[in-house]
Design a protein around this nucleic acid. Structure first.
Lengths: 360, 360
DNA sequence: CGTTTTTGGAAAATCGATTGTTCACCAATT
DNA sequence: AATTGGTGAACAATCGATTTTCCAAAAACG
C-alpha cells in the first residue's frame, strides 16, 4: 500500500495474512464463513489498525444496492415543504441511506441534470414530492429507472403514494369556525390542478354539508405563495358582500392573506376570522398570529422514506432469490403499489389569535 | 443482454460490432481515439437504439471522480439557511454534480451516519455549513477524507471558506437608524461563539464608532431562534431605560423580537425601531413588516460550490499528471486554502415598516 | 492403515467502464 | 523485396469488494 493512499480490503487481508475473500466475509460477519476465531480476530485487528473504510462504490457495483435514495423536492422556498424534506432525509439516514437532493423544477427543465441524477446505479429509489401536478414527465422518467414513492399526490395507482389527511384538516378548520358561530366561510384553495388543494377543498365542502350549509360554499383559488394570498385578500375585499371567515389551504398563502387584510385595515379576527392549514414556527409571528390545523409533515416525509425502503428491500430480496437478477429486472412490476394515509398524529387545531366570533 | 436488464457498454459494443474499448472512447469523444467515421456512427446509433446509460458507479470506480458533492447543513428549520442550501445545490447541479444532503446535528451525533456519508469513494468534496462553532470534529472528519469548503466560518486557515460581508451588513443597519436620528441602539447578537454573530457585532461597533457613539454600544445575546428573540425582547423591556432602536443579528430572531414587543403592546416603530439582518419572503408578513439588510445567501451557497468545484478540478488535474495517483494522496496539501468574501451584490437595505424616527 | 468427511481458507470470476499496450494490415519508402 | 510508418481496432489490466468454486490438510471412521 502506497503511504497516503487509503487502505483497501487487499491491504487488510495482507496485513492479516489471509485472502481478501476471508477478510471480506469476516468484516461483513457473513454467517456462512468458516474461519478460526483467531483468524477472525487477526482480520479485525488489521482493519482497525489500518483504519480500513470500505469503498462504497466498489461494494455497490458488485452488490444489488447503492445505499442512496433520491429526494426530488418542490418549492423549497416554503418551510412547509422543507419539513417534508427533513422528515424524509432523517428517516433515510436512520436506515443507513444517504440522500441525494434535487429540485423538481431544475430536473424538469434540464435534461442533463435529470440524467446525472438518474444515472444507472446511482440510486436505489426516489421520493418524488409533487407540487402542481406538472410532474408527469418526471415521474415517468424516474419510475422507469428505479422504485419511486409519490408524496401528496395520487397518480393513477401506478406508483406508491403517501399522503396526509388533507380533507380532515380542512374540515377541522371549518368546524372550528362553525363552532365560533360563523356561517359564511370562504375557502381560498391552492392552484387548480393541485390534488392536495382538491382534497382540502372537498374536506371544506364536506364540513359545510354536514352542517347543512352547503349552499354557502364559496371557493377562490390562489397559487401557493404569500403574494398570491395577498392578491386573493384584495380580491375578496373588493366584493360587495364579505364572508365572516376565511379558510386558507396553505400557511404561506395565509401569511399573504393576513398582510392583505392588514394593508386594507381590516381587523382580524374582529372583522374577519382566518384559519390556515399547516403548522410552522413563523405562523405565530405573522401580522396576526395565525390559527391553523397542524398536519404531520415531517412524519409524511418519514413515511415516504419508510415505504420506499420497504419496496427496495422487497426488490433486493426477490433479486437475491433469483440468484442476483440484474437491477432493472421487473421494475415496478415488483409489488403492488402501496397507498398510505398518515393519520398519526391526526390533524390538530392550533389556536392562536386569528379567529373569534363573527362580527355583528 | 437479458431482456429487461439495462444495457451495458458491452451490449452497445456488440450491437455495433466493435470492442468495448472503442465504444467507450467514441461515446466519450476521446480525442485520442482513431476510428473511421462510419465506425463511430455505428457505435452512436447502437447506443441510441439500446438506450444506453453509463453506469455511474462503474465509471467512478475506475476514474478519479464520483460526480457527487456532500452538503452538510445546519438549522434547516430556518429559511435563511435553506437559501444557502438552495444556492449550493443549484450551482452543483449546474456543474453536473449531484448533491448529498446531511444535517450536521445528525452527523455529529451518529457515527454510523457519518461513516455512511463519508464512505470512501462516495464524494468528491463537501460543503460544510457552520452554525454554532461546534463542528470542529465534523470538519476534522470531513477534511481528512475529501476537500471541504466552510460556509460562514473561519477555521484557522486550514480549509477554504466563503462568507458574506456580515460586518458591512450590520453597519448598514446601524447607519440607517443613525440617519433616522437614533442615538441609542441595542444590538441583539447571536449565541456566543458564532463567528457570524461576532462579525456582525463588530460591524455594529464600527458604525457606532464612526459616528462617535461608541460609548452607547449595548449588546445582548440570543440563540438563532424566534423563541430566543421573544425572550430577548422581554428582557429588554424589563430594563429601566430603553434604547430607541434595536438591530437584530438574524431575521428569525427578529421575528420573535417583534412578537415580544407586540405581546407587551410596545408599538413598532412608534416606540422602538427594529432592523434585522437577512432577507426572506416571510419578513414582510411579520407582526410588523421588518426592515432588513439583505445578504446574498443563495450567492453564498453558490460561491461555496464554485470554490469547492475549483478545488476538485485542481486536484483531479494534479492527480492525472501524476499518472492516476490514488485519491487520498496529499489531501489538503493540494492547494492553499481559498478565502472568499461574497461582495456582489453588496448588502442592501430593504425598507419596510419597522423603522422610523425615534420617540420623543 | 486407507478412505470418507469435515474444516479452513485460497483462487478466480464478476460487477461495468476506462485506458495503456499491442497487433494486424496496407501503403509508402529505401 | 524488405523495412518503416501509419491507421484502425482488439486485448487485457485495472478500480475495490463480493461470492462461488474449489482444493489442501486435518480429523473421523471402518
Amino acid at each position: 500500500m502506497t503511504p497516503g493512499a487509503s487502505p483497501t480490503l487487499r491491504d487488510v487481508a495482507q496485513e492479516a495474512g489471509v485472502s481478501p475473500a476471508i477478510a471480506s466475509r469476516v468484516l461483513n460477519a457473513d454467517p456462512s464463513v468458516r474461519a478460526r476465531e483467531d483468524t477472525r480476530e487477526r482480520v479485525r485487528i488489521a482493519a482497525q489498525r489500518l483504519g480500513y473504510v470500505p469503498h462504497s462504490l466498489a461494494r455497490s457495483l458488485r452488490g444489488a444496492r447503492t445505499g442512496a435514495i433520491g429526494l426530488v423536492m418542490h418549492g423549497l422556498d416554503s418551510p412547509i415543504n422543507v419539513d417534508v424534506l427533513r422528515g424524509a432525509q432523517a428517516r433515510c439516514a436512520e436506515s443507513g441511506y444517504v440522500t441525494l437532493l434535487a429540485e423538481a423544477e431544475e430536473l424538469t427543465q434540464n435534461d442533463s441534470q435529470l440524467h446525472a441524477f438518474l444515472a444507472r446505479g446511482r440510486l436505489d429509489g426516489v421520493i418524488l414530492h409533487s407540487g402542481y401536478g406538472h410532474e408527469d414527465l418526471l415521474l415517468e422518467a424516474v419510475s422507469r429507472s428505479v422504485p419511486a414513492v409519490l408524496v401528496n399526490a395520487d397518480h393513477g395507482g401506478a406508483v406508491s403514494t403517501v399522503r396526509v389527511d388533507d380533507a380532515a384538516a380542512a374540515a377541522l378548520a371549518v368546524q372550528h369556525l362553525l363552532d365560533l358561530g360563523h356561517r359564511e366561510i370562504t375557502f381560498i384553495a391552492g392552484p387548480a390542478g393541485s390534488e392536495t388543494s382538491d382534497r382540502r377543498q372537498s374536506g371544506y365542502c364536506r364540513a359545510l354539508e354536514t352542517a347543512g350549509l352547503v349552499e354557502t360554499a364559496d371557493v377562490m383559488h390562489a397559487e401557493w405563495s404569500a403574494a398570491a394570498g395577498r392578491a386573493a385578500a384584495e380580491d375578496l375585499l373588493d366584493r360587495p358582500r364579505l364572508p365572516t371567515a376565511v379558510v386558507v389551504a396553505n400557511a404561506v398563502t395565509a401569511a399573504g392573506v393576513l398582510s392583505g387584510f392588514r394593508d386594507a385595515a381590516v381587523t382580524v379576527p374582529g372583522e374577519l376570522s382566518v384559519v390556515g392549514v399547516h403548522d410552522s414556527w413563523f405562523l405565530e409571528h405573522l401580522a396576526v398570529a395565525l390559527t391553523t390545523v397542524r398536519l404531520p409533515l415531517q412524519a409524511l416525509g418519514a413515511a415516504a422514506a419508510r415505504v420506499l425502503i420497504d419496496e427496495i428491500d422487497a426488490r433486493v430480496a426477490k433479486g437475491a432469490s433469483r440468484q442476483g437478477g440484474k437491477a432493472g429486472a421487473g421494475i415496478n412490476g415488483a409489488r403492488a403499489p402501496h397507498d398510505e394515509f398518515i393519520s398519526e398524529p391526526p390533524p390538530q387545531l392550533i389556536l392562536r389569535s386569528s379567529t373569534g366570533v363573527p362580527r355583528e
